[in-house]
């Protein structure tokens, strides 16, 4: 692939966390996290369950107020920005796939345009253009007139991703975006995320699959217990040492092109014959 030419402020700082902490009651979920995210980069956040990666994404989206530190969106503090103003700069694919069963897909994707609409106007030619483009990218045009209740989980997830793309924001947050998708669309979605980054957006995704993360992301943030354990290019972060420390399992790492595949040692040992069983 030809490297994308610098455009749309490629490389410019989109989002930064300054010493951000968050706690539910007395339990600290995020602990003094400082990170910068640039336009043009696809960043994957990985880590074991409960390490705080989803919370981190919610803090970045302004859905949770950090108990210390600050989040800056394009240099301006997130706190105090109206939701509508923020939604023009930052979009997020949330994890819940709630949507009324009777809602038509085209209307669902059109919801992504809310931040660009006036109080009484909706559906301007520009809105329609963005909706159409987003549906093209996510290959959901043939579902446009279907109702949400008729869709499979994977189809709904792609339509919701189209809605998020229609929002046309510079920062794209994805919370486990490959949920509900089969193999083909998992890769298609990750490819879309990479292309969105290449076109000058800052794309930040919480992912579970280390192989996916290493294959598509430019940079990986590995978290454990509310802290950043390591960050950087996939090959530097996804070492057997880091994986053992964070996930508590021994793996064999196999570099494969740009991907790093971690296979559990326990499964690679040849199967022993269960005791007492005869041939």
């Amino acid at each position: 692939m030809i490297a994308a030419a610098p455009q749309n402020g490629q490389g410019a700082l989109a989002l930064s966390l300054k010493d951000v902490g968050f706690s539910y009651g007395r339990r600290a979920v995020l602990d003094a996290i400082s990170l910068d995210f640039a336009r043009g980069q696809f960043v994957a956040v990985v880590g074991p369950n409960g390490c705080g990666k989803s919370t981190l994404l919610k803090v970045m989206a302004g859905l949770l107020q950090p108990s210390q530190g600050a989040v800056l969106v394009e240099g301006a503090p997130l706190a105090g920005t109206s939701r509508k103003k923020l939604a023009r700069k930052l979009s997020m694919l949330a994890q819940s796939n709630e949507a009324p069963e009777g809602m038509v897909v085209r209307d669902l994707v059109g919801m992504g345009r809310f931040a660009h609409e006036g109080w009484l106007s909706s559906g301007s030619p520009e809105d329609l253009r963005h909706v159409q483009t987003a549906m093209d990218i996510m290959e959901v045009c043939d579902l446009a007139e279907r109702r949400v209740g008729e869709l499979s989980g994977g189809q709904l997830q792609r339509c919701r991703m189209a809605m998020t793309l229609a929002q046309d924001a510079g920062i794209l947050l994805l919370d486990e975006p490959t949920n509900h998708l089969d193999l083909r669309y998992q890769y298609a979605l990750l490819e879309t995320a990479r292309m969105q980054a290449a076109s000058g957006r800052a794309v930040i995704a919480v992912l579970h699959d280390l192989t996916h993360a290493s294959l598509y992301a430019d940079r990986i943030i590995l978290m454990a217990k509310g802290k950043v354990v390591a960050e950087g290019p996939p090959a530097d972060v996804l070492t057997t040492g880091n994986v053992a420390e964070v996930y508590g399992i021994s793996t064999v790492a196999m570099p494969f092109g740009r991907a790093v595949v971690h296979l559990p040692e326990s499964a690679l040992v040849e199967k022993r014959q269960p005791a007492g069983e005869r041939k």
Partner: peptide, 8 residues
Amino acid sequence: EQAATLGA
């Protein structure tokens, strides 16, 4: 949450 990030 989705409504909030969409701008409402």
